[in-house]
Design a protein around this nucleic acid. Structure first.
Length: 305
DNA sequence: ACTATTTCCTGGATGC
DNA sequence: TGCATCCAGGAAATAG
């Protein structure tokens, strides 16, 4: 279940391997759940685009795309209402020019959310197509980038007009004042607030539990009842947990593996997540599990108040 | 404007 | 062995 550290690891791995490559063609499966944008729009946006960068925003992987202005103009005019062709010379010679040449490239983004079980694999075209493969992106380098997701909680979309807005604020970039402002006054349990991507983006169930343990706060505590000092401690804990996890390549439980298929190791550092009934590593008290907002929440009843 | 609950999905684990 | 049931959980949709 990829959260911020896993997605960061995957995005970095992908960036290393596909930056600069060009999309030749795109195949999209028939299942509609994984597609947040219309299939034709995703395909049209990706095809003939150069992958300028791959980065993470919250739990999303964002591919920054650049396309020759001429080709993009033609596609936009055909596929999007109210978007007129700009009248630039659309000669075949121009559309085949190298990416560096000619007018400024038109930008777009391909956004991938892995959900629970989504994976992006880079492979040779003759690799067996796995069950639950929903997208195959053919690259000019001869490789393929495939999206595989058995549970179909993952999502693919494109942003063409404006930049993709992931909502919320990056937990590794937010400062104490911003954090307190966003979380204080909320009546909801702090655990729910941490999972709310519109507040803070990228923290999921594992890292919420681990951060709350380090900060000594019970997951059911209402955000509004937590003192500023304690909220500050929580933010420090969140940043610490996320940074440590990124350094270890994320947590490999269930389906997660990095871009090259390697596993992460942060699961070995989990102090409460998945440890129901086991002794607290600090005080030996049995770790409890309760359900909050439909999510398993693990905590030490003695260390967390 | 918030908050809480339900729904979507499949595979692996568990129970009888 | 086989079959049914439960559970994992992010985010969108729905209800209050």
């Amino acid at each position: 279940m990829p959260e911020l550290p896993e997605v960061e690891t995957i995005a970095q791995g992908l960036a290393k391997r596909v930056t600069g490559d060009v999309v030749e063609s795109v195949w999209l499966g028939q299942k509609k759940e994984p597609l947040k944008s219309p299939a034709e729009e995703i395909a049209a946006t990706l095809e003939r685009s150069r992958i300028a960068a791959v980065r993470r925003m919250g739990k999303h992987i964002v591919f920054d795309l650049e396309k020759n202005g001429v080709a993009q103009t033609r596609l936009s005019g055909k596929n999007r209402k109210g978007h007129k062709s700009s009248g630039k010379a659309a000669t075949p010679a121009a559309s085949e020019r190298s990416w560096a040449a000619g007018s400024a490239p038109l930008k777009a983004q391909w956004i991938v959310h892995l959900g629970m079980t989504g994976r992006l694999q880079i492979c040779a075209p003759d690799w067996e197509i796995e069950k639950h493969t929903h997208a195959i992106v053919k690259l000019a380098s001869g490789r393929e980038l495939r999206f595989v997701d058995p549970r179909r909680f993952g999502r693919l979309s494109v942003a063409t007009g404006a930049d993709f807005d992931a909502g919320g604020v990056e937990p590794l970039e937010i400062d104490t004042d911003q954090f307190i402002e966003r979380f204080r006054g909320r009546k909801t349990p702090i655990k729910s607030a941490l999972l709310n991507q519109a507040l803070l983006r990228g923290v999921g169930n594992i890292y919420a539990d681990e951060s709350l343990f380090r900060a000594g706060i019970r997951p059911r505590r209402r955000a509004a009842t937590i003192a500023r000092e304690k909220l500050n401690k929580l933010l420090v804990a969140i940043k610490e947990v996320l940074r440590e996890a990124i350094a270890l390549g994320g947590s490999s439980i269930s389906d997660y593996v990095g871009a090259d298929g390697e596993e992460g190791f942060f699961q070995l550092q989990h102090r409460v997540y998945g440890r129901e009934g086991e002794p607290c590593l600090v005080c030996q008290t049995s770790i409890k599990r309760v359900v909050i907002a439909g999510r398993s929440s693990h905590y030490c009843p003695k260390c967390q108040k």
